[in-house]
Each structure stands twice: as structure tokens, then as C-alpha cells.
Simulated scan of single mutants.
Amino acid sequence: MSTGHRQAAAALYGHGDADREAVLGALPEADRAVLRRHLAEMAALGFERVPLDRAALDPAVADDADAQAPDGAARRVLQSASAHQLFGVLAAEPAGLAALFLECGPWPAERALVAMFEPERRARIDAVRKAGMTAAPALRAALLDALAADLPAAVPQARAARRGLALLTGWMPWAK
């Protein structure tokens, strides 16, 4: 009995009976027998059957789930943000945090945002992303909440910078 069989049984345990039987039916008899023993053992030990996250399998369900997810409001705010706004929030953050944010996407402004980082920083972010860093859902939700909360603070700073530039160019006509 391999660890792979145990992991597969743990993954199957939350499925509904019909789905579980469909998956088991597609496997060779030897694997099916091992998995059925593990599933029976889990049931005998009183493991709670947690329903499968259908959003992980079906993008249409994922869209509905995103609207009701704990990070749904923060995700909507961040998805509507421009690359400049996101950069204003992420510019001073470590490369690992920026990479983790990008992995929570996809983000409409992602390509433009990544291009805004200096090449060395962009390389560090890419290296972290290629390392396959993942985070627990609660950490991802907390990250998105914190970034979305910081986003309004980034917008006035960007406006102030533009206003300062406008005042400067108005005062110095040759700078236009």
C-alpha cells in the first residue's frame, strides 16, 4: 500500500457516491481494491466526508464560487485595479509577496504590472513563481484583503504625483 493510494483515497473520500464509483471504475482492479480498503478504513474511523470543491473542476462553478468566496470582494477590487495602482501597492513589497499575489490570479493587469518592475526584481519574482510557491487559502485570502485595503491608499498617491507633475509643468512652461 503506497502513499499514493492513501492520497488518492483521501481525495476520493469527499466525492459523492456516483463520482467516486465513476473514478474507481476507470482504475485497474488491483488499484480499485486498495482504494476501496482505504475508503472503508476512513469510514470506519469516522472521518468526516467533506464535499468536493466543484469550483476546482468546473470554471463556471468557479466564477459563482468566487463571488461568494471570503476573498471575493477583495479579488473584485484587485481585478478592477490598473497596473499602476497595483504597482503602487506592490512596489515596496518583497518579491515573494508579489509572486504570491500573481499566483492568486489571473489578473487583467498582470502583464502590464510585471513589466513595471525593474528587470532584476522581475527576475526574482519569476524565480519565486517558477519554484512553485503555493499558499493556504486562508493566507491567500488575507493577502488579497490586505492588498485591496492598501489599494485606495495607492490611488491618492498616484493622483498626488500626477497633480505635482501638472503643477510643475504649469509653473515651468518649457517642461511641457
Rank of each mutant, 00 (worst) to 15 (best):
P108C: 04
G170R: 12
A166H: 10
A161E: 15
A60M: 06
E120H: 10
Q85C: 04
L90M: 04
A153V: 09
K130Y: 09
E118S: 13
E118M: 09
A26H: 13
A148Q: 06
A95M: 04
M116W: 06
P70Q: 09
Q85D: 15
C104F: 03
A26P: 08
A55D: 03
L97W: 08
A67L: 10
R111I: 07
D63Y: 08
V128R: 10
E48W: 08
D66E: 15
A98F: 00
G25R: 05
M1V: 10
P28K: 12
P70S: 09
A9H: 05
H38M: 05
A161R: 15
E29D: 14
A142C: 01
V23E: 02
D71I: 00
A9F: 02
D53K: 05
A136W: 02
R75Y: 03
W107T: 08
R122M: 06
L151M: 06
T3K: 12
A74W: 02
T169M: 11
A136T: 11
A92M: 05
A65Q: 08
D150N: 15
R32C: 11
M42H: 03
A67V: 09
R54S: 07
A91E: 11
V61Y: 05
A22W: 00
Q157F: 14
I125Q: 03
L52G: 07
P108Q: 05
E120S: 13
T134M: 04
A69I: 01
P119S: 08
L78P: 03
D64N: 08
R6I: 11
M116F: 00
L78F: 04
A99G: 07
A115M: 01
W174L: 09
L52M: 12
F87P: 04
E41S: 14
Q68L: 14
G105T: 07
G46Y: 04
K130L: 14
D150M: 07
G170V: 00
R37L: 12
S2H: 14
H5G: 04
S80K: 11
P108R: 05
L57G: 02
H15S: 12
R20F: 05
